[in-house]
Amino acid sequence: MTNSDKNRLKDKAFQVFGIFCTLIGLVVLAVFLIDILIKGLGRIDWEFLTSLPSRRAARAGILTAWAGTLWILVLTTIIAFPLGVSAGVYLEEYARKNRLSNFLEINISNLAGVPSIIYGLLGMEIFVRQMGLGGSLLSGALTLSLLILPIIIVTTREAIKAVPGSIRDGSYALGASKWQTVWNQVLPASFGGILTGIILALSRAVGEAAPLIVIGALAYVPFIPSSPLDEFTVLPIQIFNWTSRPQEAFLINAAAAIIMLLFITFLLNGIAVYLRNKQQKKIKW
């Protein structure tokens, strides 16, 4: 065998190995999805979506769970969106580049890597106990907001950074103040990117169970929350609860709830991809 034959063989070998590695992840995911779909799809009907939880698997539904998830989504957005975007704008446009801003930057990136259960413990101490909010929707949304704030701040900064400096120069040169420039030029030009980041952050928050369990969200809530101070449950907690039961029927319920949760997550991701593509088409620098 000549040297070049050997090289070609190595090349081929790596290609095969690479395909194998790529497929492992996909195949496992596909097997999981198919298994869930087979088990759960038949269980999903109008009654399942509109029934309250029950001790009997056949009568149990996920009404309170998805209503809670929706509440959490909306409240978390209302809390995290203005905080995260404002912080991102401040760090990118206003903060002078010095030691303090460097220190803040590094720590925000670090916060994005903190395990979610730690945020749960923090939320329990601050919101549930100190502020006396109890295991309410508001406590949950505040906790999840803390969890996704670093992600929103980082993506906001990336989106703002992508706006060329010449646009800011043009605005300043016409007598605009910093705020006018941010509001009229920078934010509109980077809004698609910011929105994409927020939606991806929310789709992460939707899937969290651990921090909400820590702050005391319950699996059995026999009513739809009607105010932010009500107790609640969310889909991931309902799923966690059902999968820990021994009866087969509850496992099928869990599979059906997982399909609903995946549906919400994929929907959010789909919106994010759509917005990003639309934005890229609209603005060509």
């Binding site: 010449s166 646009i167 120069d169 043009g170 040169a173 016409l174 030029q185 620098w285």
Partner: peptide
């Protein structure tokens, strides 16, 4: 004191 830049920079 108005200004015009090197590269045309119309707002999007």
């Amino acid at each position: 004191v108005g200004m015009v830049f090197q590269k045309p920079n119309p707002f999007p």
